[in-house]
Simulated scan of single mutants.
Amino acid sequence: MTSTILQLSETGQAFAFRERGQGAPVLLLHGVGMQSAAWDPQAEELSHTYRVIALDLPGHGGSAPVPAGSELPDFVSWLHDVIRTLKIGPVSIAGHSMGALITAGFAISHPEMTARAALLNGVFCRDAAARAGVVARAADIRAGKGDLETPLARWFGDSATDISARNLVAGWLREVDPSGYATAYSAFARGDATYADRFSEIACSFLAITGDGDPNSTPAMSQAMAAQVQDGRAVTITGHRHMVNLTAPDLVTSHLRDWLNSPTQLEALS
C-alpha cells in the first residue's frame, strides 16, 4: 500500500495512512514503535471485501507527533480527528497493543462512531509489579536508554516465522522517531487503567485476541476485558506471543473476518 499524508481537520497536523480496497471501512492501529505496514498481512486479505485504512500513530511513520507528555485520552482525541477528517464513521476499529488501548478508549468515548472494536494483545489493569516494570521502561526510553533486544526477545520465539517477523519489527523500531516513541510509550505505560472501569459501556461487537505466550498482554487480561462487554469475546492463540498478527497472520485474519461479519449494534436492533 502507498502511504498518503493528509492534514487533520481540527489541529492541521499531518497524519499518514495506507489504504486499499472498497466497502465498509476498517481502521487498523499499530503498537508503539511500529508503523502501518505492521498490518500488511491483514490489510491484504481484508481489502478484498472492505476499505482497509492502516494508520501511522502520532510520531510514527509519516504522522506528526502529539505534544510530549500526552496521555492516552490525547491519542483517542487524535483518532477522533482522523475519523472526522476521513469522514468514515461509524467504523470498525482493530488495534494492537497501544493501538488496542486507543481503540477501547475510542469505543467508550465515541460509541456513535464505533461500529465494532477488536483489541489484539491489549493490556488491562496490570498488577503492581508489571506496572512498575513498564513505567521504568518508559523512563529509560525518555532518557534515551531503551534497547531493542529486550522487547524483541520477549515478543518472538525461534521459529522461522518468528525470526522473519522479528527482523521486520526490529527495522521499524530502528526507524521510529525517538521522541514520538517516548511519548507514545509513556502513554502506553500509564494507559492500561485509564478506561478500565468503563468497559461495560462498550455496546458494539467486541473481540480481544492475544497469544498464550504473551506475558504482558495475557489471556487473563483479554478474558477480563471481554467479560465486561455485553457483546464481548476473547480468543487465545496457542504457541504465539505479542506480535500475533505477524506470527499467526492467517489465524488473526480469520478471527477478524468473523468479527467483521458480526452485526453492528444498529443491525442487531433492526
Rank of each mutant, 00 (worst) to 15 (best):
V123L: 06
M113C: 11
R116V: 04
G144D: 03
K145C: 05
K145I: 08
H110D: 02
R131Y: 15
A138Y: 08
A136I: 13
F124C: 06
C125W: 03
A130Q: 14
R137I: 15
T114S: 11
F124R: 12
G122S: 07
I141S: 01
A129Q: 13
H110V: 01
V135I: 12
R131S: 09
G133P: 03
G146K: 04
R142Y: 11
V135Y: 01
A129T: 12
R137Q: 13
P111T: 11
C125E: 14
L120Q: 12
A132I: 03
G122T: 13
R116I: 06
D140W: 03
M113I: 00
L148N: 14
H110T: 07
L119Y: 00
A139K: 15
R142E: 14
A129V: 05
A139R: 07
A130I: 02
D127Q: 05
A139D: 04
L148V: 08
P111G: 00
L120V: 06
T114Y: 00
D127K: 02
A117P: 02
A143D: 06
V135Q: 09
V135G: 02
A136S: 14
A115S: 07
A138V: 14
R126L: 15
G122Y: 02
A128H: 11
A139T: 08
A118P: 13
D140E: 14
A143M: 05
I141H: 11
K145D: 08
D147Q: 03
C125D: 10
A130C: 04
R116Q: 07
C125M: 04
V135M: 10
F124A: 13
G144H: 05
A143E: 13
V134P: 08
A136Y: 10
V135W: 03
G122R: 01
A130H: 08
E112K: 03
P111A: 00
T114R: 00
F124S: 06
L120T: 03
L119A: 04
A117Q: 01
P111L: 03
G144V: 09
A117F: 06
D147F: 01
G144A: 13
I141D: 00
A132P: 02
R116G: 04
D140Q: 12
V135D: 09
V135E: 10
R116H: 01
L119C: 06
G146H: 05
V134N: 11
A132D: 10
A115W: 01
M113W: 14
G122E: 08
R137M: 09
F124K: 10
A130G: 11
A138H: 03
G144L: 10
A118F: 06
I141W: 09
G133D: 06
L148I: 07
G144Y: 12
R116Y: 08
A132W: 03
A132V: 02
E112Q: 12
L120A: 04
A132N: 10
A143S: 13
A143I: 07
A129W: 06
F124Q: 07
A139C: 03
A138L: 09
R131A: 15
G133M: 02
R126A: 07
G122L: 04
F124D: 00
L148E: 10
A136V: 11
L119N: 00
A130T: 01
P111H: 02
R126W: 04
R131T: 15
A115N: 07
L120K: 12
A136C: 05
G122N: 09
